[in-house]
Simulated assay, not measured.
Amino acid sequence: MDLPVNPPVQPMLAKAVTAVPDQPGGEPVWSYEPKWDGFRALIFRDGDEVVMSSRGGKDLARYFPELVDAAHAVLPERVVLDGEVAVARPIGGVNRLDWDSLSQRIHPAASRVARLAEETPAVFIGFDALATDSMDLTAERFEVRRSALLDAAAESGDDRIQVSRVTRDSAVATDWFTAFEGAGLDGVVGKRLDGVYVPGKREMVKVKHKRTADCVVIGYRIHKSGTGLGSMLLGLYAEGELRMVGGSSAFSDKKRIELQEMLEPMRLDPDRVAQGEVSRWRAAGSGEWIPIRPELVAEFAYDQMENQRFRHTVKFLRWRPDREPESCGYDQLDVPLTYDVFDVLVTGGQ
Rank of each mutant, 00 (worst) to 15 (best):
229 L>M: 13
255 K>D: 15
262 M>R: 09
219 G>D: 09
185 L>R: 01
210 K>T: 10
254 K>M: 10
203 E>W: 00
217 V>E: 11
208 K>E: 13
195 G>H: 01
211 R>F: 06
226 G>I: 11
219 G>R: 08
254 K>L: 13
276 G>F: 05
194 D>V: 05
280 R>I: 08
238 A>W: 03
205 V>P: 01
228 G>F: 04
233 L>G: 10
270 P>E: 05
271 D>M: 12
201 K>C: 02
218 I>H: 13
265 P>R: 06
232 M>G: 01
221 R>I: 05
195 G>T: 02
279 S>T: 09
238 A>R: 15
229 L>G: 12
245 V>L: 13
189 V>K: 00
243 R>F: 03
230 G>A: 13
186 D>G: 02
278 V>P: 11
206 K>V: 03
202 R>F: 00
225 S>I: 02
270 P>V: 10
187 G>Y: 03
265 P>D: 08
242 L>N: 07
273 V>M: 08
212 T>N: 12
194 D>M: 00
194 D>S: 14
209 H>Q: 14
234 L>G: 02
200 G>A: 03
202 R>P: 05
267 R>Q: 15
248 S>K: 11
200 G>Q: 02
204 M>G: 00
267 R>T: 05
251 F>K: 01
249 S>H: 12
259 L>A: 07
259 L>R: 05
263 L>M: 10
189 V>S: 03
259 L>M: 12
266 M>N: 14
269 D>C: 05
239 E>P: 01
198 V>C: 00
227 T>Y: 11
186 D>R: 09
268 L>E: 01
191 K>L: 05
195 G>F: 04
198 V>Q: 10
268 L>P: 02
199 P>M: 04
229 L>T: 11
269 D>W: 03
220 Y>T: 02
197 Y>H: 11
206 K>L: 05
252 S>R: 05
200 G>I: 04
192 R>K: 06
245 V>A: 08
265 P>Q: 13
277 E>G: 13
262 M>A: 13
242 L>T: 02
222 I>T: 06
271 D>R: 15
204 M>Q: 04
220 Y>Q: 04
210 K>F: 10
196 V>F: 01
281 W>G: 14
258 E>I: 12
253 D>K: 00
278 V>Q: 15
250 A>R: 13
257 I>Q: 10
185 L>I: 13
271 D>S: 15
196 V>P: 00
209 H>R: 14
221 R>D: 04
240 G>N: 04
223 H>P: 06
266 M>V: 14
197 Y>W: 03
204 M>S: 03
279 S>G: 10
221 R>P: 09
244 M>W: 12
226 G>E: 05
210 K>S: 14
227 T>D: 15
238 A>E: 15
267 R>K: 15
196 V>L: 01
208 K>N: 07
241 E>R: 15
193 L>Y: 02
272 R>C: 12
196 V>Y: 00
196 V>M: 11
230 G>I: 07
205 V>K: 01
199 P>S: 12
214 D>R: 08
263 L>S: 09
205 V>L: 08
195 G>Q: 04
265 P>S: 11
226 G>A: 10
206 K>P: 00
273 V>H: 03
260 Q>F: 10
214 D>E: 10
193 L>D: 01
278 V>M: 12
187 G>D: 09
228 G>V: 06
244 M>E: 04
216 V>N: 05
269 D>E: 07
225 S>H: 04
258 E>N: 14
199 P>V: 01
242 L>C: 03
262 M>F: 13
251 F>L: 06
239 E>Q: 15
246 G>A: 14
